[in-house]
Amino acid sequence: MFTLEWIGNFGFSVLRLSTPLIYAGLAAVISAKAGMMNMALEGMMLVAALAGVVVSGMTGNLWIGLAAAILFGVITGGVIAFASISGKTDLYLTCIATNLAAAGGTVFAMYLLTGEKATTSAAIRAYTIPSITIPVIDKIPVIGPMISGHNLLTYVAFFSIWAVWFFLKRTRLGLRLRAVGENPTAASSVGISVKNIGYISFLLSGVLCGLAGAFMSMGWVSFFMKGMINGRGYIGLSASNIASANPAGAGIVAVFFGFTDALATSLKSGSSFPSEFIEMIPYASTMLAVVVIGIIRTNKARKVAKGGH
């Protein structure tokens, strides 16, 4: 089983499955840095996934579809920002309501547009974002099949880790966003609008969720399917929480979760073990990771408190 070829394929599958988690993790990082917990990643990704498929199918242009996915991610982010920041609705409730509405809303919209309720695969012509073979590298054994030939958006995802870091660290907006997240009164005392920064963080979160959604429906598969995000938004959020909203850390944790996902997939095909338990692996590992990190953090805090005496 563990041939070189298998390792290469497995690595490929890890990176592929990590892609949406990386985007979700980074989207959560941006919101977290602005001081908010974005639990609506799930809904934002779902809306974007549908928008991408539908618009690319309607216009016959892949890239317009991608743009639409991003646009709808951003719009959903804007709705959440409006409700929670301007409407002063509890952010938790807003996000939960958004996810509920997105789960039903996408099916509804899909039905109106295609007459289907489960998937668009039959009704809408599929467009997929191209995969890219990296010359030279693809010839290297093991590593070549692992990192070459991925969907464009997979490479963009890894690039985004750097981009988000750069944005937060090197741009004025990023600096202000971090300032607002850590100490809103300090930021507003020097004339920075906390409200505007809150909006911006959700809109940027929307861009990343748009890419994630597009990857799901125009890369991973080539159609939209009811509930296709399947908890990935929450797993991405956990990645950000575990990494304390550090972009590189969130990326690493996302790849770890991608690894468990890939493990589950490969186990399913090769064993007689009930598949239900294998399906639980990504969720169970998320819960486990959250607990482990919680134990580490409380121990650390306890040590600090003891040292203080």
């Binding site: 509920l100 039903g104 309720k117």
Partner: peptide, 21 residues
């Protein structure tokens, strides 16, 4: 399709919970 109801549900939750509404 029955799913359009979930959108309505989302609207209700948001409006009832919104302080500013």
């Amino acid at each position: 399709p029955i799913e359009f109801i979930t959108i309505i549900q989302g609207i209700v939750i948001l409006m009832v919970a919104a302080d500013e509404f």
